[in-house]
Amino acid sequence: MRESVLRVVAVHPELLGTYGDFGNAIVLVQRALWRDIPAEIVEAKSGEPLVRGGDIYCLGGGEDGPQARSALELRSDGALASAISGGAALFAVCAGFQLIGESFTGPDGKRQQGLAILDMRTRRGPGLRAVGELASFASEDLGVDSMSRILTGFENHAGHSDLGAGVAPLGKVLRGVGNGSQASEEGAISGRVIGTYMHGPALARNPALADLLLSWIVGPLDPIEGEIEEETGSLRESVLFGVGDRRRARRRRSLFSKRPFGLRRRSGVAGE
């Protein structure tokens, strides 16, 4: 059993937390605590030196101005990159995902230098903002339940991110835009770094990802049993298949028009 407290650092929550992204830190800590692993959230406010000694760092989504400011601070501070090379994990969402790459587009439309933790370049996409449900099929097996390989989130961004040769996508887009690349890639995974356009409570919707991050730090994990897994299953069904809202589900197209991977709508629990 681990003796030291697992430290989950929410980086610049007042700059990078537009879409409830602080929730990812809550999810990580709760899933550790439920397994009797002592854990705590540490808030790393902007304007102060970044907290050293964190186990998992979380970066959230944010508007263009705050994103650029956060990137500038983190780059001159330097502690995030050295924490990652020292074995810490990183979960970066949306604007936070963009800023850990080599470059991204700033509020003035000009190229900004990123933290270069990932070999990735983000530019403004050619079309409209990508806004809506995002689903992808994870590049690696995330758990015993094959359903957990379907990743689900909500995206709201204008950037297109091109991954370098050494970086794998987190998943392949089933619905939505994701990185906006030709190859329908979503997010990135490299070492102990995960980036994604699934903003907000991505780890609540995808607990397999949360457990992957935790396992990188504490090793193999016991499964969590009980209400949360059932509730999460119902949540995932409702957003992936629309069974949470039967009245509307009849009116709208199915999430997967081609039903890839042999997915079928399971008998509805959520719609009851």
Partner: peptide
């Protein structure tokens, strides 16, 4: 509500005793 499961999951992580009735 339509998104009762989003709320239920949030409440569980917040340690709020609850039930879910769509």
């Amino acid at each position: 509500g339509d998104r009762c499961w989003d709320l239920a999951v949030r409440l569980t992580y917040a340690n709020v005793p609850h039930t879910t009735v769509p």
